[in-house]
């Protein structure tokens, strides 16, 4: 728009946007800056140093955080894998399964974990495990994570599948491919960016989860969020800030990765059209 009078422009909106970004990033940047603080106290600046980063890996609490990180990542990977597989199957069933009675109910069921408030899910799961005598432990966390990861994986996968023209599969069927081959060699490659996006989303959601995990974790099991919560309640120490910064950078890396995969997917689609 080269006009001097821009109809879309509203004065002050740019300012509010900048304010928004300042609010969003402010606390995070402060945490990052203080993670390099050399002094023990949070509020006094003592000079730049990497000691807290070293402390996370070698200090007093490092064993606890390492174990928590290990738990978090293994659970997240396994939950993401299982829920992505289930979500992929579900999206094919919903979007390529024709119209059937109860389709809306099926959709409601699949999205149920997102609609139910986290605290309610946590309580219900705890009550359930306690009633059937399911021992609380890493497995209980994994099961609960798989449940709420399914809809998160489902969303990008089904969005992607929705945008794929059905004629490819019909062509494959005309060529006498069975359904498995149609999926494996035609659908899956095109769906792949959506599947990967779903996987990454499920992974991050599982990694991030606090409330549900806190409720149903068993003895001696901590995940990163629960370990951080326990530590933070006793006082925000600089090593927590270092840990937070590391997690922040890791999340940024994952999101960037997901973004570039998404772009590649768009390019592939454009090529096919």
């Amino acid at each position: 728009m080269n006009r001097t009078f821009d109809i879309t422009h509203y004065r002050g909106f740019f300012g509010v946007t900048c304010l928004c970004l300042v609010i969003l990033y402010g606390p995070l940047i402060i945490v990052m800056v203080y993670s390099f603080n050399d002094s023990l106290s949070i509020t006094n600046w003592g000079g730049v140093s990497l000691r807290w980063y070293v402390d996370i890996f070698t200090g007093l609490e490092s064993a606890k955080f390492k174990a928590a990180a290990w738990n978090s990542f293994t659970i997240a990977i396994m939950a993401a894998i299982v829920s992505t597989i289930i979500a992929t199957a579900a999206s094919i069933g919903m979007i390529r399964g024709g119209n059937f009675k109860g389709k809306f109910v099926s959709f409601a069921l699949i999205s149920l974990p997102i609609m139910v408030p986290e605290i309610v899910t946590a309580v219900a799961t705890l009550i359930f495990f306690s009633t059937i005598g399911f021992k609380l432990g890493t497995l209980s966390i994994l099961v609960a994570h798989i449940v709420f990861c399914i809809p998160f994986a489902y969303l990008p996968i089904s969005a992607r599948l929705q945008g794929i023209d059905a004629s490819y599969e019909e062509a494959a069927q005309d060529l006498f491919a069975n359904r498995w081959m149609t999926f494996r060699y035609v659908l899956m490659p095109i769906m792949w960016p959506g599947i990967l996006a779903g996987f990454l989303l499920a992974f991050i959601i599982s990694l991030d989860d606090f409330i549900i995990t806190n409720f149903i974790k068993g003895a001696g099991i901590e995940t990163l969020p629960t370990a951080i919560f326990g530590s933070v309640k006793q006082g925000i120490k600089p090593n927590i800030m270092a840990l937070s910064t590391l997690l922040l950078l890791f999340s940024i890396a994952l999101v960037t990765l997901s973004y570039f995969i998404g772009k590649r997917g768009e390019v592939t689609q454009k090529l096919q059209q």
Partner: peptide, 25 residues
């Protein structure tokens, strides 16, 4: 883009998600 190619197997495809969410939530 809704087609019915997979409709014969759709029960199998949907069952895992129904069972997992139904049973655990």
């Amino acid at each position: 883009t809704v087609s019915a190619i997979f409709s014969p197997v759709r029960l199998w495809l949907l069952l895992p998600s129904w069972i997992v969410i139904g049973f655990f939530l």
